[in-house]
């Protein structure tokens, strides 16, 4: 009989004898992986959305009067004096009116009685990608609002600020749920293995007396930890994928969720999550073995 066969049989015996506590441990690990992966997935998608928002970010500087070409050049120089930008575009009153009309589509007749110059002229400034952190954009906005002839500057401040604060909150939850994952995986598996070792103390003592090697005694517990990590992460991630698919199906169609493209973890991320779970559970089983299975 080979070592591997003997060890696998011992693992099977352990699972059979303590199936209830094994099941509870597996459930806890799966739940922890699920919770962590859920928030991490939300965070990941928010980062993607943040990138997209950043990509589309432009500051609109509304002006009192339409600038003559000379003034346009002056304003351009002033804007560039703050930092390099990707694009600066002047929008005249007429152009603004045309844009607004085309945006109204079938309802453009509401503008029939309106003068064509009722909209203010503006400058659209697209900042460099390197200037897209919230604080930098704020500073740039303040600078632009002080330019002569400026009425106000808009870039969806409130919405963007709330989004960044929410992203920060989610990142804290991700860190907390990572802590939960570490605690539950390491401590639950460690506690479970400790209980098994204590419950089987007589058998383990006998195994030593009849000549079992340390590897023969320890490897099944080690494999138990690996299996808890592997199965726990598989179940947790599969459950999350189920939930993700359900949400996508349920909320498909017109709505806020359709503005952005939500995506599940890429295979490398799934593999990394599984490896981390396996390592944590194995660490749990190792700590118990070190403490309770002295050579």
């Amino acid at each position: 009989m080979s070592f591997i066969f003997a060890v696998l049989r011992q693992v099977y015996r352990n699972f059979r004898q303590t199936w209830l506590s094994q099941f509870m441990t597996l459930l806890t690990v799966s739940l922890s992986v699920f919770i962590f992966a859920f928030f991490y997935l939300v965070y990941n998608n928010m980062l993607t959305i943040g990138d997209k928002l950043g990509y589309d970010l432009r500051l609109i500087v509304y002006l009192e009067d339409e600038p003559i070409p000379e003034l346009q050049e002056q304003l351009k120089r002033k804007i560039l004096a703050f930092d390099e930008v990707e694009d600066i575009r002047f929008v005249s009153r007429a152009e603004a009116f045309e844009r607004f009309r085309s945006q109204l589509g079938d309802d453009q007749d509401v503008l029939e009685d309106m003068p064509k110059d009722f909209l203010p002229p503006s400058i659209e400034v697209v900042p460099l990608k390197s200037l897209r952190s919230l604080n930098q954009v704020k500073l740039f906005s303040e600078y632009l609002s002080k330019l002569p002839g400026t009425i106000k500057v808009q870039y969806g401040q409130d919405w963007i600020e709330r989004f960044y604060y929410f992203t920060r909150l989610v990142s804290i939850i991700v860190v907390l749920s990572a802590g939960l994952l570490i605690l539950t995986s390491v401590f639950m598996v460690s506690y479970k293995i400790r209980l098994t070792i204590i419950g089987r103390r007589e058998e383990l003592e006998l195994l030593r007396l009849v000549g079992a090697t340390n590897n023969y005694i320890r490897t099944p517990f080690f494999i138990e930890g690996v299996l808890h990590g592997l199965l726990g992460s598989s179940i947790g991630l599969a459950a999350l994928f189920g939930l993700f698919t359900w949400i996508k199906m349920k909320f498909s169609g017109p709505g806020i969720l359709n503005i952005f493209e939500f995506s599940f973890f890429q295979p490398p991320a799934i593999i990394v999550l599984a490896i981390i779970s396996i390592l944590l559970c194995t660490m749990g089983s190792y700590t118990s073995m070190r403490k309770y299975l002295k050579k």
């Binding site: 007589e202 058998e203 003592e205 006998l206 030593r208 007396l209 009849v210 000549g211 079992a212 090697t213 340390n214 023969y216 050579k295």
Partner: peptide
């Protein structure tokens, strides 16, 4: 003797204990 060496020795010694040590 420790570890594997002790294990091999014990595999070659059969002991019938007074308190049996049965599972």
């Amino acid at each position: 003797l420790r570890g594997k060496g002790l294990a091999i020795l014990r595999q070659n010694i059969g002991v019938a204990y007074q308190d049996f040590k049965l599972l």
